[in-house]
Computed example of a mutant assay.
Amino acid sequence: MSDDSQSEARAFARDALSTVAVVVAVGAVLFAVSGVWPPMVAVESGSMQPTLERGDLVVVTAEVRYGGPAADDYGVVTANASEGYGRLGGPGDVVVYDTPSRDGSPIIHRAVFWVEDGENWYDRANSSYVDGSDSCAELLNCPAPHAGYVTRGDDNDYYDQARGIASPVRPDWVRAKGQFHVPYLGELRLEVQKLL
């Protein structure tokens, strides 16, 4: 191998290693700031429009970080207790959650209010979002089968719990909460995901 070839190989290896080092350093900083991995999620549906569009990239943090003044013991501020605090265009926190009974991607919706185990939450609910039910007896997940958050996509005309998308969201199902978003930057991730 000539000296020029060896120099080119060393330069290529040095460039590759410095690129990997930069990517690892950026990942470490993002993890240190957010407390979760991955620190960003791509929005896969229109359920949070107009706040979040399909393909937006949402920067998320651990639920106990950067809470508002009305944060509960789990670090989440519900819309009904927000006291002027809000994230991503509305009152309260937007949470990323996954339920044991659901296959597929996690859900990113707004935490609206907290219910206790066995609570009849129909009377506290906004009647526009109870899916046509006239009482707790007609409503899915009412009384609450366990304590947790009642959630809703900003564009949905129903609570997730009213349609059976999830029972009240237990705090340990919450993987992160949204802080801010970058429009359309998650589209690339969604396209790559289609290919896999």
Rank of each mutant, 00 (worst) to 15 (best):
S2L: 14
D3S: 11
S5K: 06
A9R: 13
R10M: 13
F12T: 02
D15I: 02
S18K: 10
S18Y: 13
V20D: 00
V20S: 03
A21T: 04
V22E: 09
V24Q: 09
A25V: 13
V26T: 13
A28S: 14
V29W: 14
V29Q: 10
F31T: 13
F31E: 12
A32R: 11
A32L: 15
V33N: 03
G35S: 04
V36H: 09
P39L: 08
V41C: 03
A42W: 11
E44I: 08
S45H: 10
Q49G: 03
Q49P: 06
T51F: 15
V58N: 04
V59K: 04
T61E: 14
V64P: 10
V64S: 10
Y66H: 11
G68K: 05
G68C: 02
A70S: 11
A70T: 00
D72N: 12
D73N: 04
A81R: 12
S82V: 00
E83N: 05
Y85N: 01
Y85P: 10
P91L: 09
V94H: 08
V96A: 07
Y97K: 04
Y97Q: 07
S101F: 03
S101L: 04
R102I: 01
R102E: 08
R102V: 02
D103S: 01
I108H: 11
R110P: 12
V115H: 05
E119F: 10
N120P: 06
R124P: 05
R124E: 09
A125Q: 02
A125V: 01
N126A: 00
N126C: 04
N126F: 01
S127E: 14
S128Q: 09
V130L: 06
C136L: 11
C136A: 01
L139H: 12
V150S: 03
V150L: 11
V150P: 13
D154C: 01
D155S: 08
N156L: 11
Y159N: 02
Q161I: 06
A162C: 08
R163W: 14
S167W: 12
W173A: 06
A176T: 05
A176N: 07
A176L: 11
A176M: 05
G178I: 03
F180S: 00
H181Q: 10
V182R: 02
P183T: 00
P183A: 00
P183H: 01
L185P: 09
L188S: 07
L195M: 15
L195C: 03
